[in-house]
Amino acid sequence: MKKLILFICLGVFSANWASAQSRKYVSQFNQFQSYFNPGLTGYEGSTFRGFVRNQWAGFEGAPKTYFVSLEIDPSEIKGSGEENIVEGKNAIGVNLVKDQYGPFKDTEMVISYASRIRVGKSSNLRLGAAMNYSMVGLDGNNLTTEQADDPTVNQFLNSFANMTILDFNLGMALTSQNYYFSYAAHNLNRGGISSGDIFLESKPIVSIFQTGFRHSVTPNVSIFSHVMYRIQSDLPSTMEFNIKALLMEKVWVGVGHRIDYAFNMQLGYAMPKFKFGYAYEMPVSGSYLIPNPTHEFMLSYYLFRKSDSMRKVGDLIW
């Protein structure tokens, strides 16, 4: 099984030597808006988040992703009440992501800043920018090739290679209490600033469109829906969506689908100061993915919110 994983990773590695072909999948993508779009930094206020994704659980060498982030809205620190969430003009964030897949180890740090312009009673135009610093390691001891004397691969066999890449992301979003529309572009410099062992010569620009809506059906039931569409030149475009119901202001249940790839079921628990989410993902038939399930665990903690000054929990979470 281990060799099968290595052959898969090597196929991606060799066929796309000059272009870094990678895409991070998250079933609960709506929980990590600032990572995908710097303009949405601080959208839910000052938060600390943690996330673990164990892909193809039980399969040796399967990808694993770890994520932590911190977002700060300075207006909340002043403690002048809930209205500051609407009127605050600036937010900053730090995202740390660690990926391990086959012979590759990828550690990514994204530092983001967002500025908000109030355009309505409860709506904002948000503009954001981020600096993306990646450290990519290649373990040549885990490389296997079916073609003898392949010069592309042989230079890294039985050795280690490391490179760093500095790039930039931009994003914008129109947000309100009950909806958001956003667009972001990643890798604007195409990986042009790099150092170390240059085994990935460039990175493609990635366009990310996201939108979300929520609606209160009854005082005890709210519906949330989200869509994300990604365009990347060296990979097929993907669309994914999820929909969930928040019940009694505490528990949510939901389903999601990454078109042509995977289906997921979600369960979560919300409190005024934190929320916890779990997703169980299975590849769809015909996607040619390894049929093992994927598990995701997410935890968010709201740093400065006070229960006695908040609206309903459902009015504040996405």
Rank of each mutant, 00 (worst) to 15 (best):
M248E: 09
L247A: 11
S233P: 00
V251R: 05
F213P: 05
E249F: 00
E240A: 09
A262K: 05
N292M: 06
S287A: 15
L267E: 05
M265K: 02
P219T: 13
S222F: 03
K244D: 04
M271Y: 05
I223A: 14
V227S: 05
L303S: 02
A262W: 00
N242P: 02
P291G: 12
N242A: 06
Y269P: 01
G254D: 03
Y301L: 13
M248P: 00
T294K: 01
L235C: 05
S285W: 04
M228K: 11
Y269V: 14
R230Q: 12
E296I: 06
V227A: 08
A245K: 01
F276W: 04
Q266G: 04
N264W: 03
V221A: 05
G286W: 01
M265F: 10
E240I: 07
Y301P: 03
K273Y: 03
H215F: 12
F224G: 02
L303R: 03
P283D: 10
S300I: 07
R214E: 03
K250T: 14
R230M: 13
S237P: 02
F297T: 11
Y229L: 10
K275M: 07
F213Y: 12
V255T: 13
S287C: 10
N220T: 14
T218Q: 11
N292V: 10
V221D: 04
M271T: 14
L247C: 09
D234M: 10
V251T: 14
G277M: 04
E249A: 10
S225E: 11
S285L: 12
N220V: 12
M298W: 00
P219G: 10
E249C: 08
L235A: 14
M239T: 15
E296V: 04
F213S: 02
M271E: 14
G268Y: 03
F213H: 01
R258V: 06
Q266V: 06
P236Q: 15
V255Q: 02
S285K: 15
V253L: 15
P272T: 14
I243E: 04
R230K: 13
S285G: 12
K273A: 07
Y302R: 13
D234C: 09
M239H: 02
S225G: 15
P219S: 11
I290C: 01
I243M: 13
D234H: 06
P291L: 12
H295V: 10
E296W: 02
F241Q: 06
T211Y: 00
S300V: 09
N242E: 11
S237V: 09
H215A: 13
R214H: 09
V253H: 06
V217M: 12
G268D: 00
D260F: 10
